[in-house]
Write a protein that binds this DNA or RNA. Structure first.
Lengths: 245, 245
DNA sequence: GCTCACAAACTTGTATACAAGCTGGAAAGC
DNA sequence: GCTTTCCAGCTTGTATACAAGTTTGTGAGC
């Protein structure tokens, strides 16, 4: 609708869905304004829209930050996704062949990306499966809701997921599609429930979102040799938020 | 967060939920700014947030309007509500006694409002039941989603609902709570599905949203005696949007 | 009397200016 | 050397000014 401001919003959201923007990343109004060649007004507009969609947050006079969901918020996001996605599968009566075809194709692309080892696109694809599903079985409204929720859970995974299990997720997707193909939507719903449960269980929600993650990442590829302690042993003055610049 | 702009947003949303603002109502930035004693900036902020929540829309350089969902959008909203609310009931394992108590109480208030004939508050209460349910069984995120959806369906009812059936809805709510009380959540989910289906079926989605509804309402209580044709017989130049001022 | 064209008033769209507050670093004091 | 205080710079918050487009009312022409 507003050409540029919609682009800013969409650009940031899809970067999050693709896992290219880390939770906690600071998004300065002026920098984005320069980047997109508009004034701060439009950027603020996009930011406020993203804030109501739950993907960024403003800290008064400090800046906009990509949300870092708390453990509680993480649980809420997963519960919500479980409710909606199982509800969708159980509400639908039958699945059109074209939809099945499209989903099978999507899963095939997932597997290809995993075997190729294309890490950057596979996270995006795994989330995209759920968005595709909502789009195919539901409607635009539902798709938008799922999209925002997927952005949230993507950020949560970045914060709390110790190890990725892309193969397992893709296999789950395959099973869900198979159940749909067999016309057993109740089973598809149950599999979806388990799938989301597995992803959630794979998180380490006891570990607080690590404010040092950014620093550690910068230091870990060993500029210094022979030190890979899990926690830096020197006293650090808690930089709290800022990670990228 | 932003005290005033959040208030504007909340004030408008709850007015919609209470049925005090009609779909299609124009919301002028300057007038709202004067009303709330702030500048247009804050009002625009609130409007854009409400736009991403799907309750208002901007028509370029003409103004902000409370949405008038199309028949297609109405179907989408009801499908989405059905998916989420049945999904919620089916996901929940057991219902805490305190929740049951609170829901029973709510239904009692509904019935009281209906018997009293308090038309203004009963629409609000009927929608509130679903919001309460999401709040009690789900989480804040889910509640917010349901709240926005309820705002949508409230507007849809205003546009397409020929006759209100408040007693029936309240009775449905009672049955749903009874099923929950009996621990039969599958039945509760089915009843919820039927309930939302009934509300949707009670709409006349073939009737286009009537751009003259506002005018007709203003004229119908007979300033002139003896003329109540369903359509004014003189040529009207299609005022399209504006209804309130 | 009716239609059409034009202009004035009004509304949103966008940028910019300035105010308010936070952060980080330098300098002073211990 | 270490801590504390204060100031300069940077970032968002809010208002206002102006640009661009829409609507409506007026008046000329038929």
């Amino acid at each position: 609708m507003n050409p540029a401001s919609a682009n800013i919003e969409e650009a940031i959201l899809s970067a999050i869905l693709a896992g290219r923007i880390n939770p906690g990343t600071r998004l300065g109004e002026q920098k984005l304004a320069d980047l997109f060649g508009v004034s701060r007004t439009r950027v603020r507009e996009a930011m406020m829209r993203l804030e109501t969609r739950g993907v960024v947050q403003v800290s008064a006079r400090r800046g906009w930050f990509v949300v870092e969901p708390s453990a509680e918020e993480a649980r809420e996001a997963f519960q919500t996704r479980r409710v909606i996605e199982t509800g969708l599968l159980q509400t639908v009566r039958e699945v059109p062949p074209a939809v099945l075809e499209s989903l099978r194709e999507h899963v095939a692309i997932e597997r290809a990306a995993i075997e190729t080892g294309d890490v950057s696109s596979r996270a995006c694809l795994l989330g995209d499966f759920h968005i595709h599903l909502a789009d195919a079985l539901g409607n635009r409204l539902l798709t938008e809701i799922i999209r925002d929720l997927t952005a949230r859970t993507t950020l949560i995974s970045m914060l709390y997921q110790p190890t990725e299990k892309a193969e397992e997720s893709s296999h789950d997707h395959e099973d869900i599609v198979a159940a749909m193909e067999a016309g057993d939507l109740a089973r598809a719903a149950r599999l979806m429930d388990e799938h989301i449960g597995k992803v959630e269980a794979g998180l380490d929600l006891t570990a607080k979102p690590d404010p040092l993650a950014g620093l550690r990442e910068l230091l870990s590829p060993s500029t210094f040799a022979g030190n890979a302690p899990s926690v830096p042993h020197h006293h650090t003055p808690a930089p709290s938020f800022e990670k990228k610049d």
